[in-house]
């Protein structure tokens, strides 16, 4: 029985988000974050919060694309819960280099447009 841990819809993509995307990193912030953070981020509308902590083995769905979670940094859940903030690294690493990281396989970052859904699903 799978559990939906987090769900959000993309509302806008910051002008400078491409700097992170070029390095295989998707930075999410909720639309309540200060403007200077939204500039660098994929901005979403989650306001329901997070039902459970994200953990290794969960699935992250971006639109139609699904990615298994390989690593979760120490403060990643705190970031997501408090700020709607997620640093998703497409690096294939099973160790979180930074405390805020959530790692998924080293794959091309899928297309994201306003309206794209972000969902985190647990088993």
């Amino acid at each position: 029985m799978s559990v939906q841990k987090y769900v959000a819809r993309v509302t806008s993509i910051g002008e400078l988000a491409g700097e992170f995307i070029a390095e295989g990193i998707l930075v999410f912030f909720s639309n309540t974050a200060p403007e200077e953070l939204q500039e660098h981020a994929v901005v979403h509308d989650n306001s329901n919060g997070q039902s459970e902590d994200v953990q290794v083995g969960d699935t992250i769905r971006i639109g139609e694309h699904r990615f298994p979670v390989l690593a979760v940094g120490d403060v990643a859940n705190e970031n997501l819960r408090n700020l709607g903030h997620l640093v998703l690294k497409f690096n294939g690493s099973s160790e979180a280099e930074m405390q805020g990281d959530v790692n998924v396989p080293e794959e091309a970052i899928p297309e994201i447009v306003p309206g794209t859904e972000l969902e985190i699903i647990g088993d």
């Binding site: 912030f29 200077e36 940094g73 970031n79 640093v87 805020g100």
Partner: peptide
């Protein structure tokens, strides 16, 4: 900030 290392660490120094 309470940044885990990637995003906020740079935004404010940049400003």
């Amino acid at each position: 900030i309470d940044c885990g290392g990637t995003a906020r660490v740079g935004v404010y120094p940049m400003k």
